[in-house]
Design a protein around this nucleic acid. Structure first.
Lengths: 259, 259
DNA sequence: CTCCGGTCTGCTTGTTCCTGCAAGATAGCG
DNA sequence: CGCTATCTTGCAGGAACAAGCAGACCGGAG
């Protein structure tokens, strides 16, 4: 049985049942459990399903907060950074989140903040990231506002003129940018120019701009520029950041938080 | 019993009863009290419930269970209906999907359609349903356009003036409506007036309007009216539909497909 | 035809994670 | 203050997992 055929069969079974165990799948397809595990992992990497212990579930039916297979690289740095970013947001504020793994961690960190736990919406979250909206939508303490637009498969971000139009109608207290590169001279940047455009617009609608970037992003350049370093108020990064780079940012007027 | 299944069962019991004791839950699910306590703690951390001594209570005012925790009722009817609806859509068209369990099945049926499988976007899907967008976003054969707006936790739908604004800028070939009630005299209806407003707007922007509703919805009335029956071109339902009701719809000029 | 490199699968082993049990700590209640 | 139900914590057994290795398969080059 080829891998193509196996993947197709797995996805069909999964859609049909909502959940599929590794052992069951192995038995039904006549292959070993190890192969099924590899298949599940690879399909999860493509976001075709969500891995759980013992099996897999269709996308959108996962409950686990620490989604184990999604946050692969530098997970602990990202979580520490995310917690620090979450602490910069006060109850009742409107916070804008762009897409990316770091901002997804910020969303999770906001979700477990105790002082936001009570009844009426304690925080308004504006985002163009589909995955963030999906995770937060069930939680009563958040009012979730999504920009419209066309979904980019790679990053789960909504982009395009429709997104721009919605952002033109709202403002936020804090914008949290996830970036792929941040440099004093070249500013913040993303992989894709459409994402950069949406992110730039979100910055312009925000009273405060926070960049969340682990130290590997600092001093780097990337294709699509979002905004100048001077536009950013606060940079949150990890302690592995090069001290010279940090000082450069501070001399440019940014507040730098290292965790 | 897996943790997924346990959490799902716990949340369903909790919403049903408003309060759940550790001991009761342990007995009903056939696991130890210690496990239930750990589950409660983890769910409480995610703000899905509030922990009390001896048990747990539902969180805040949100008594309606979100879509993704609901056990799908009439699943097989919905899947058959969904497949029939998917067959009404031609390759290359733009199709609008509202929220709900039935339209989610329509999205899945579209995703497994063989003639759409190849390379460049074979279908544009416009939706205000977060869960549908999440599931389809990774599939290269779809271009996914999401309306913006505020997310309703219960149905995963985006509503409000931002959604209306985006819908005003696009048109679709087919609109597929998921409804909670559909009657010849009273038209199609939803639970929530904001959802109804978005759905109505989507209808107005569509060349053809399809209602997907299992037979239990027919002849019913619900709070928020979406549109008149005459606005709808095609009704897809299951064979358990009352023949008189079906004839009424046909006399009103609708094409009725039963599967 | 044979050889070779690459890829994939299945097996094995050590590790991690989950659950149930039990003992000690704690909070509510009279 | 003491009693009791409940909770927390540590531990052990078992299930699931990750990684490494060996064999099978495939396609291309000689």
């Amino acid at each position: 049985m080829s891998r193509d055929a196996r993947w197709k069969a797995l996805l069909e079974l999964l859609v049909e049942r909502g959940r599929l165990d590794v052992e069951d799948a192995a038995r039904e397809l006549g292959v070993s459990a190890a192969t099924i595990r590899r298949d599940f992992d690879q399909l999860a990497e493509q976001q075709m399903l969500v891995r759980t212990r013992g099996g897999a579930v269709v996308h959108g039916v996962s409950y686990e907060l620490p989604l184990r297979y999604k946050t692969a690289r530098r997970a602990s740095e990202k979580q520490r950074i995310a917690k620090a970013v979450a602490d910069l947001v006060a109850p009742g504020e409107a916070v804008g989140l762009t897409g990316g793994t770091t901002t997804t961690e910020v969303a999770r960190a906001l979700a477990v903040r105790g002082d936001l736990a009570s009844g009426t919406p304690a925080l308004t979250v504006v985002t163009n990231a589909l995955n963030i909206a999906s995770e937060l939508a069930v939680r009563p303490q958040f009012k979730i506002v999504l920009t419209g637009g066309v979904a980019r498969a790679q990053s789960y971000e909504l982009v395009g003129p429709l997104a721009d139009g919605v952002l033109g109608q709202i403002t936020v207290d804090v914008a949290v940018l996830g970036v792929v590169a941040f440099d004093v001279r070249h500013g913040a940047a993303a992989h894709d120019e459409a994402e950069a455009a949406v992110n730039r617009l979100l910055c312009e609608r925000a009273a405060r701009v926070v960049v969340a970037a682990d130290s590997s992003k600092l001093g780097q350049r990337a294709f699509a520029r979002i905004c100048a370093a001077g536009t950013v108020d606060t940079l949150v990064t990890d302690t592995a950041a090069d001290p010279h780079t940090v000082r450069d940012f501070e001399e440019a007027g940014l507040r730098v938080v290292t965790v």
